[in-house]
Amino acid sequence: MAAAAAAGAGPEMVRGQVFDVGPRYTNLSYIGEGAYGMVCSAYDNVNKVRVAIKKISPFEHQTYCQRTLREIKILLRFRHENIIGINDIIRAPTIEQMKDVYIVQDLMETDLYKLLKTQHLSNDHICYFLYQILRGLKYIHSANVLHRDLKPSNLLLNTTCDLKICDFGLARVADPDHDHTGFLTEYVATRWYRAPEIMLNSKGYTKSIDIWSVGCILAEMLSNRPIFPGKHYLDQLNHILGILGSPSQEDLNCIINLKARNYLLSLPHKNKVPWNRLFPNADSKALDLLDKMLTFNPHKRIEVEQALAHPYLEQYYDPSDEPIAEAPFKFDMELDDLPKEKLKELIFEETARFQPGYRS
């Protein structure tokens, strides 16, 4: 834990890192770190609560700039109880001085990944967590956004079992017609939660990839272990087919990539493993919904509104309290091709509203 900075004593240090967030945020305490930044909790002297502050230093890398800009653009436009918001952003007053960006968010005690390492969940908890994931996802999908990296560590939890989806750095506007060349190379989302079509096709992607990830998360809540822990690309596919069985001819016809289709045709026939054999203690309604989410063919996979209306979630289902976005989200430009200098300018502009004396 960093010592509390005395008023006016300059930035606090946390594990050798400068955290320049005073005077409003003090009493910093280390939480963890990701690929390009550290997260601390801090005391907000204005709202009198502890908050989470993520320090991001992305400006050396085009990919990190892209992810940072995506996350900020999306989260500043989203407003939903099951999606983490941005409360404040701290950065230098000029673009030349801006080396880091500090993002202030609600402090959540833990995440689903940490929880599943230590606790076996009751059916009631599984049901409530799944409902909140789908409630947040309904809003995301209504904005025409794909999260693309749903996994237990991106689901934040607090002691009252509130759940918030975080990390929109890989999110995209849904565009089933656009052929994202190089899709697989830039697709760094965790393999275990990846839909089979991501490994088999490169053309376009749809909201059904997020539903697949939610199915993987439900299976993990039922058993405290990942359902498809593939060691590499082909191993991942083999794990999936080992449980779902061989795809039907109709399902194979959806695979545009001939090499991928021929690979699947070359494999020995596998039978589907019954879900109640894998999860003998699970609620039968939970397994019915799991089956509809972990469907090989993305066109037959359940959609988020149908999933919310499934009998497993009937005690929570309330369409009048499951809000959607006001308007579909649009990125003005494809960020993939922009140089990091341009992305830095866009991050600077996007964060201006939090600067003292800002006038829109």
Rank of each mutant, 00 (worst) to 15 (best):
L308H: 03
D337R: 07
C216I: 08
L346M: 13
K164H: 07
D336C: 04
F331R: 00
D321F: 08
F348D: 09
T295G: 03
E326C: 03
L294I: 02
I89K: 08
I83K: 05
P247R: 00
R359F: 06
G204N: 07
D288G: 00
A2Y: 03
A219K: 10
I90M: 00
A171N: 01
D179E: 13
E33A: 00
L237F: 08
S266P: 00
L157H: 04
L241M: 14
L308F: 03
E220D: 13
K114T: 10
P328R: 02
K270Y: 10
M199I: 14
S320G: 04
Q236I: 04
N253F: 09
I302A: 03
H232C: 01
K300I: 08
L157N: 10
A5G: 09
G242M: 09
A7F: 03
I255H: 01
L218H: 10
K114V: 09
V46N: 10
A52S: 14
K272Y: 09
L116C: 00
A325E: 14
G204H: 11
G32K: 00
V21M: 13
R50N: 12
L150I: 02
I243M: 08
Y193W: 05
Q62N: 13
G136I: 08
Y43F: 14
A92M: 11
T94L: 09
Y36R: 15
M108G: 09
A143F: 02
V173F: 10
M108Y: 10
N262F: 07
N154V: 05
D332A: 13
M333T: 00
G204A: 12
L146Y: 05
E12I: 06
T26C: 11
I95Q: 05
I217G: 08
K292I: 08
G85W: 00
S284W: 05
D106H: 10
N47I: 15
K54P: 04
L137V: 03
A6D: 13
Y316Q: 09
L107E: 05
M221F: 04
Y187D: 13
E314L: 10
L76A: 07
A195N: 08
A3P: 09
H125L: 14
R24G: 08
E109K: 13
Y36T: 15
L112M: 15
L130T: 05
N257W: 04
D124Q: 12
E303L: 00
G32M: 01
A352K: 08
A9D: 13
W212F: 10
P196C: 08
L234E: 04
R194G: 13
I347P: 05
F354G: 10
P328D: 07
L234Y: 12
G357Y: 11
G85M: 12
N224E: 13
N144K: 12
N201E: 11
R77D: 05
D149N: 12
E250Y: 06
R50C: 08
D321M: 02
E96L: 12
F228R: 05
I140V: 01
A327P: 10
G34N: 04
L335G: 12
P319E: 05
T181E: 06
C40E: 14
Y102I: 06
N297D: 10
L75N: 01
D210T: 08
L346T: 10
Y43M: 00
P226H: 14
T190W: 10
A219I: 06
L137M: 12
Q97F: 14
E71S: 13
E109C: 06
F129H: 08
W192G: 12
F279D: 02
T295W: 05
G8Q: 07
E71P: 13
L156F: 04
Y30S: 11
I209D: 10
V304E: 08
N154A: 06
N47D: 14
S246H: 10
H147P: 10
P23K: 00
K114E: 00
D162N: 13
N158V: 04
T206L: 09
L264V: 07
S246K: 02
L313G: 09
I256T: 00
T68W: 12
K48F: 11
Y358F: 14
H239K: 07
K114D: 12
L294V: 07
S213V: 11
D318K: 06
F183R: 07
A35M: 08
F279H: 05
L75Y: 13
E303F: 04
L313K: 07
Y43I: 08
M333W: 01
A286K: 00
R225E: 04
D283L: 05
I31A: 00
H61I: 07
Y64E: 12
R148W: 07
H125C: 08
K330L: 10
I84P: 01
E12H: 06
S213D: 10
T118Y: 05
A92K: 00
